[in-house]
């Protein structure tokens, strides 16, 4: 005797009916249109990265690594990128990089405002939180099917799957960073008559920046981990090399693709981590971080004496 003897639920049929019978016919054009910006950004970035000579790209990454992560990582970058080039995977690596950057860009564009809203409204956060939990815990293979049905196959759907998978840390840590800004500071901002926007820009984002950048780093890592899975639905790059290798039981090919992903992951991780730590517990303004990012290490000398905002009161 089991519950199934009494009643069986055709759960899969319901989902099928919902997705096939309602969502796809009614909203397919909407979803198709939604992937246009992703496609535009991705194609341009991909074309650009493939156009720039390998030497130049490597130099740029090595320089960034040297500034934010130290000399060791800079040397690793040069050797690693040279290795990728020598095993003939440079174009695929650039395509993967374009996909990663595009995903992270959209994660930031969507995640930052969501995180800010979540920090400002407990109700919104209560609704959003389980959604994020679900997004992070559902095995990504599960939503590949509806994504293919709604968006089709190709690069853009692969990136959309990546965005869904990688966005939660961006939202979570933006929310956390802003909520952790000392209450008396936001109260002071209010007491001086600042608007919510002024407070966000002058106080909350700068003080949350370190946490937000940590979120960005995590998002980046999650996006990298989706490279192979996204390739299943038509995204190219290194993921495709791995999948092809897998399909043909070509250990060499799969490993080569895997090594490329690992090298890219290490370089990107270290650079973005260095960027976050450089912002010294959020004591830099957004403008300072932007100039830092553009100009590199020549940041204001006062940084060295700064302590975090949390320890004092």
């Amino acid at each position: 005797m089991s519950p199934a003897d009494l009643i069986t639920i055709p759960f899969d049929d319901w989902i099928n009916a919902f997705v096939r019978g309602w969502l796809v016919p009614n909203f397919r054009p909407v979803f198709r249109a939604a992937q246009v910006p992703v496609t535009v950004v991705l194609n341009n970035l991909n074309a650009f990265l493939l156009f720039v000579p390998m030497i130049l790209t490597t130099a740029a990454f090595a320089l960034a690594a040297w500034r934010y992560a130290g000399r060791g990582i800079a040397i690793f970058t040069i050797l690693g990128f040279a290795f990728i080039d020598m095993i003939g995977l440079w174009p695929e690596t650039m395509t993967t990089l374009a996909m990663i950057v595009t995903s992270v860009l959209f994660c930031a564009l969507i995640g930052l405002p969501l995180g800010i809203l979540a920090a400002r409204s407990d109700t919104f956060w209560r609704i959003l939180r389980p959604v994020l939990d679900v997004m992070q815990t559902i095995p990504s293979f599960v939503y590949l099917v509806p994504i293919v049905m709604l968006f089709g196959v190709g690069m853009a759907p692969g990136i959309i799957a990546t965005i869904i998978f990688a966005i939660p840390p961006m939202v979570r840590l933006t929310n956390l960073g802003i909520r952790n800004v000392r209450g008396d500071l936001t109260e002071a901002a209010r007491a001086f008559g600042s608007t919510e926007w002024q407070m966000l820009w002058d106080l909350q984002i700068p003080l949350a920046l370190r946490t937000i950048l940590a979120g960005l780093n995590q998002t980046l890592m999650l996006a990298l981990s989706m490279v192979v899975i996204a390739a299943l639905i038509g995204a190219g790059g290194l993921g495709l090399i791995v999948n092809t290798g897998l399909g043909r039981l070509d250990v060499g090919g799969a490993t080569a693709g895997g090594v490329g992903i690992v090298i890219l992951a290490i370089v990107l991780d270290r650079i973005t981590q260095g960027l976050g730590e450089g912002s010294k517990a959020g004591t830099l303004s957004v403008g300072q971080v932007l100039t830092r990012t553009l100009r590199g290490r020549g940041a204001a000398p006062v940084d060295a004496t700064v302590t975090g905002p949390v320890a004092r009161n």
């Binding site: 000392r182 008396d184 500071l185 109260e187 002071a188 007491a191 001086f192 002058d202 106080l203 700068p206 003080l207 959020g282 004591t283 830099l284 303004s285 700064v306 975090g308 905002p309 004092r312 009161n313």
Partner: peptide, 14 residues
């Protein structure tokens, strides 16, 4: 009206 706070509430990044 302005306000002065017990724990100063100065912006640490400015």
């Amino acid at each position: 009206i302005t306000m002065i706070f017990q724990h100063f509430a100065l912006f640490p990044h400015w």
